[in-house]
Design a protein around this nucleic acid. Sequence first.
DNA 1: ATATAAAAAGAACATTATTCTGTTATTAAC
DNA 2: GTTAATAACAGAATAATGTTCTTTTTATAT
Lengths: 157, 157
Amino acid sequence: MEYKLDEIDLKILGMMQNNARINNSEIARELGMAPSAVLERVKKLEQKEAIIAYSTRINPKAINQKMLSFIFIKVDEIIGDEKTGRLLAEIPEVLEVHDIAGDDGYLIKVRTSDSLALVDLMRNSLSRIQGIISTRTIIVLQTVKEDNSLIIPEKIE
Amino acid sequence: MEYKLDEIDLKILGMMQNNARINNSEIARELGMAPSAVLERVKKLEQKEAIIAYSTRINPKAINQKMLSFIFIKVDEIIGDEKTGRLLAEIPEVLEVHDIAGDDGYLIKVRTSDSLALVDLMRNSLSRIQGIISTRTIIVLQTVKEDNSLIIPEKIE
DNA sequence: ATATAAAAAGAACATTATTCTGTTATTAAC
DNA sequence: GTTAATAACAGAATAATGTTCTTTTTATAT
């Protein structure tokens, strides 16, 4: 990220955020500009890493990933810190890894097929990571919202 | 969701998960089948809601959303429960709302520009929701991973 | 076996992506 | 202000892809 985004960039991001498959021509029509110009902007947004990725959100239930949990992981900061987060991130069931304030630890988001698989993960993957002192697991019963859409302002600054 | 996904469906999902803008022809080439057949499958995956959405992941920093937090929200279950989750989900800064076990409460994920905006949100939006007994806020210092990609099996059952 | 339905292929056509070139704004320096 | 340099945009041409429809194949159940 380097440059500042202007109002057209923000409009483009707004149109794309919840519809990654919208086409250039459609964006161009809505903005009243040429498709080639829009394409140029989108490519720059990718280069600047204002756009991180285009992802297809898959229903976890459709692939039998019924269980969602959050786990607080307390870390011995002398041993781990830098490395621990990266090791956690390498576990495929771990969808998010956040370094959090206060407890010398991480908060991770984990998806598994069921509670058995969660226990397996904790026994096999987590316990092998050096520096983990303790964990506390939060079980999700039901998810009301999970779209991660950001609020895109009309302009910046 | 109704039907079971077969191996081809899973391969398609695998190709699309981290590249929502991959085109039909490309998928067809990789699978050795006709574009029209792939299109048909993708449309069915959308209908079955195995595919929830195509989203563009935007770098929060690019739009000045520098702060990420998780908030535990304890709810008086007699008053709120059903409604509270929906009200939380309506707040635009709230990206995720999870109903969690144990504490009669929710865990929400919140993005704001800074800590001031977080305090504003708690004072204005959260405090107006009936039935919230208490909150506990977790501040994220740094995010190591946040792609939410699921593990897609080669086949189901 | 045969009927039925689902899945896939193939062809034809519509739409979009992409590249290239020329033009118009914008910006910064003087 | 003028000018040089750069960035943004438009337009046109071509390549590639999307989409629809029809036919054929495959799978399933009876």
